[in-house]
Design a protein around this nucleic acid. Sequence first.
DNA 1: GATAAATTAGGACAATTGTCCTAATTTATC
DNA 2: GATAAATTAGGACAATTGTCCTAATTTATC
Lengths: 191, 191
Amino acid sequence: MTATRERIVESADTLFYETGFEATSFADIAATVGISRGNFYHHFKSKDDLLCAVIDLRKERTRAMLDEWEKTNEDPFDRILCFANILMTNRAKIMAFGCPVGTLCAELSKLEHAARAQASEIFGLFRDWLEHQFRALGARDAALPLAVRILAWSQGVAMMATAFGDEAFIREEISSIRTWLKEHPDIPSTA
Amino acid sequence: MTATRERIVESADTLFYETGFEATSFADIAATVGISRGNFYHHFKSKDDLLCAVIDLRKERTRAMLDEWEKTNEDPFDRILCFANILMTNRAKIMAFGCPVGTLCAELSKLEHAARAQASEIFGLFRDWLEHQFRALGARDAALPLAVRILAWSQGVAMMATAFGDEAFIREEISSIRTWLKEHPDIPSTA
DNA sequence: GATAAATTAGGACAATTGTCCTAATTTATC
DNA sequence: GATAAATTAGGACAATTGTCCTAATTTATC
């Protein structure tokens, strides 16, 4: 049975997000899952191995979320707005713990951790998906710059939300993103 | 003599930035400063106390930097560009360790650390200073939103730089910030 | 230059860390 | 239902953590 393994990854995912990778101990995870501490090494060969499993889970879930947005929205414009709206949907957690992707990348960078590049790939999934949407909107060569721009924008808003805890600001920025999309000269079909 | 205390704070400042607060041990700092490990407690009553001293140092240096920008630039427009340019000036460190202010805020949030609010005040210094500059440019009620917007923008660019390590992107974004400032309808004197 | 105060070195401390090992228990296989 | 395999619990481990204490040393005071 791999149920235990999945429960470990699930708990580690939450704890790594809410308290950080380094600050989360096996004792913390064991207490949450309800298993013995020495039992981890039957499922993972090290804490780094567990981290890799958590990152893989996040990548998988990110792909699923992006697919879902694509499936439930015909208009690429609306799809991009789905992306912007996660700031509002997850506002409580973002204000408390920051963006899960950004904060993990930052922590692994400081630790010079081998999984650093893997974590950045989650950003890569968003970037590529957004580029695809902008291209569908007719942005052509501007698609990639626009994708990174809106990704950076959302990261900036997330950081301000963490620092100042201002929910109204998040709402206003999402509104600004919508206006920016509609009026952008490089996006012919929405202008 | 307080020289030792200052050297401790100095080393801690660098190490907290480059490897994180939690991941930096007294042993690490002691090795850098070249003193005994048990010697810290004559200068600081705890690691949290040392963190407070580091944050105070950063706030002091931020104030000094902002004063300097104000002194060496007549035009508030140029002053704001000084702010945007730190992304380029510190690009190597930002790509390696992220923004020192943002990453500290994020880490302390996750740790639910008492000094969390203190760290956010560094962002507050930038925000208030930027608001002051936008007001000087005639932005009136738009000054505060514009200040937080450009602060968020810089944070987003810093995070992308950390994740993707793309120096050209930083350069392009600073250029975009300049254009944005010049053409913004809420800033009469630059439009 | 003697005396008091400030500073430092070195080690002890209890707690915690990730890791590993072994014995017990559960589960799957025939 | 016996046997093998997979899983788990519990504890040992060496290393490291922040913290504290004491004795030695340096510095300041008169």
